[in-house]
Design a binder for these strands. Structure first.
Lengths: 343, 343
DNA sequence: CCGAAACCTGGGAGCGCTCCCAGAACGTCA
DNA sequence: TGACGTTCTGGGAGCGCTCCCAGGTTTCGG
């Protein structure tokens, strides 16, 4: 008769606020006040409520709080992931750790969303629908209008990594420009004269910023900026780009690779061509992933602190949610060079 | 006067269901039915509602649905992360991708929680408080009672990776035993006779299962199982373990390393000792991380599909939530050997 | 032509909280 | 003594939805 079997009856959710009130001998209102740390509660009542809560193992119903109050006590982390590979895992995981670390202790949940192509409108509807108090966006490509849209809808938004198409939306980023510049100058200071770079994709700010920094560093060292190849943050693309550079100019004696993950590929190509690292070609990466130190030879690289990036984004968002004013619109995190064997 | 500044007034959340009803010229109930895809709605009404929804950009208030209905339309991914480094990033990121892929299209949100020490009770209260419909748990250490606790509370729970201390709770895992066995047999088939292993931590099932599999494979090849060292899934520990093995038995001609990430460290140690890979010592890893193919030499390894692990966990949980019965309690995902240069 | 079964619809009672308001209890000062 | 604060408390109206129930409309077999 019935086509669909009824799912098993949901357990009666835990204790309700009213039961706590009864157990503590006070009213719902008072319990609510205690939970939310409001003033104007006698210490006696406060104490009784705390005990009742502990005894009953009460945990407030988040849905009800959200519905009744205005806040959702919840922020979203949106990863715009076109094609699902992009901007490799370690970056994302690091940011996530940072976000979580910063959220620790605060009663704020983190919901994770990935924007698939097509879902765009759904995503915006959802986010603007009052389900979350604020949004963290990472891994933007091209001129993604998402942050702009969210910000225009009045939803507090912080972007991780400089967004190309969202002027005015607050962001936090590593100081890619200066990091890359330092790499170029360091290679020059080593006496290298044919210094190439493998840059990131042209549609990502991180790619362009590191390329600009390298160019600036090269200019300062009075070196030409002709040896540029592009990759897409995969080892394969790094290998291919290195191949291209070597064929264009076999006398290359150094290369700044705009991401460790690509540097791994470049190292393979160099090895295949019988080039010794660092004797024949010095290599400097960027990111300082875990794999940088275990590469052969260990990779000299520009370290960016992705966990700190996550923390800072979260701090910035939470500060805005708390009503703080005159917050810095943009934050740049310093990078540092880690010297290992490859340069 | 006022110590705390009031946060800026929250925007009036979007359209409400009632407005959609009015716009479509039907009742709230009918709109609700359309949204939830229930039968017994005339196609005319259905059409009108859909149009109204699109026109008004309506997005149902999740909190209200949760409160009124029984489901939260939300599952939690709990990462028990004691110490914050553990089980490195790539694993976690892969699982996450899988979970998300499986969730795509379903109207289910994912909340991420990390169990810090101390928070344990809070976490359990929260999860059992009806805020989520089910829980995915990964990265369990030792005899973590969390899954048991959750399952006992009647909360549908699926564990990723065989849990040591939670008999009876459904889990999904890679077939670590058979994968490791295959590795051992492969090395033996290559004619290697002094085959060592670098195992994972003793308090993790994944470590023990791979060790058991290796032992079984060795026995089948009539080889001794004396060369065992332990690491903790870091490159450093892999390097140290290799060092130990080499000093115990310099004639080692093969090693099965229970994780690529440790294999990287082992490779460094081998290199430092002037051992050629694979000529002097063959190396087989486990996991097939991205870095396995870019190691020097490229690592032969046992591939486990972590994304599939995430997908399968999610599928299993969702099936249970949908009320399906007689679901398999445990699921093992096959592994496969990827032959590259190191063995 | 009548009754039953299948469809379709609207009304309204909550879900568990927050937050506003009214008022009690206890001052304190003219 | 009364008028007025300040501190504390409880009552109750929603928040926006789901889901039950009652009832209306159509179809179809006897």
């Amino acid at each position: 008769m019935t086509d669909a079997v009824d799912p098993p009856k949901a357990r009666r959710p835990n204790t309700r606020l009213e039961e706590v009130a009864r157990a503590a001998g006070v009213s719902k209102s008072t319990v609510s006040r205690v939970i939310n740390g409001e003033p104007y509660v006698s210490s006696k009542a406060r104490e009784a409520v705390h005990q009742a809560i502990t005894r009953l193992g009460y945990s407030p119903n988040q849905a009800a709080r959200t519905l009744a109050g205005s806040r959702a006590n919840c922020i979203a982390l949106v990863v715009s992931e076109q094609g699902s590979r992009v901007l490799a895992d370690p970056f994302f995981a690091g940011v996530l750790r940072g976000v979580h670390a910063e959220l620790a202790g605060k009663r704020v949940q983190l919901v994770l969303m990935m924007s698939k192509e097509g879902d765009e409108q759904d995503l915006v509807n959802y986010l603007c629908g009052g389900h979350v108090d604020g949004v963290l966006v990472i891994s933007l490509h091209g001129q993604d209008p998402l942050p702009r849209t969210l910000a225009d809808a009045g939803l507090p938004t912080v972007v991780g990594g400089r967004p190309l198409g969202a002027g005015g939306v607050p962001y936090v980023d590593s100081d890619n420009f200066n990091g890359a510049m330092e790499a170029a100058r360091y290679l020059a200071s080593l006496g290298r004269r044919r210094v190439a770079t493998i840059a990131g994709p042209r549609d990502m700010a991180v790619g362009m910023d590191r390329l600009s920094g390298w160019k600036r560093g090269m200019s300062q060292a009075r070196l030409p900026v002709d040896l540029v190849a592009y990759g897409d943050f995969t080892p394969e693309s790094g290998a291919a780009a290195m191949e291209e550079l070597l064929s264009r100019s076999p006398d290359i004696d150094a290369v700044f690779v705009a991401a460790d993950i690509m540097a791994l590929g470049a190292l393979q190509t160099l090895h295949a061509h019988g080039k010794r690292v660092p004797e024949d070609v010095a290599v400097v990466g960027f990111d300082d992933l875990m794999i940088a130190s275990t590469a052969v030879p260990p990779l000299t690289t520009i370290r960016q602190d992705v966990e700190q990036l996550g923390r800072t984004m979260t701090w910035r968002l939470m500060a805005e949610l708390a009503g703080e004013e005159n917050l810095p619109p943009f934050l740049l995190l310093p990078t540092s060079m880690v010297k290992r064997g490859s340069a």
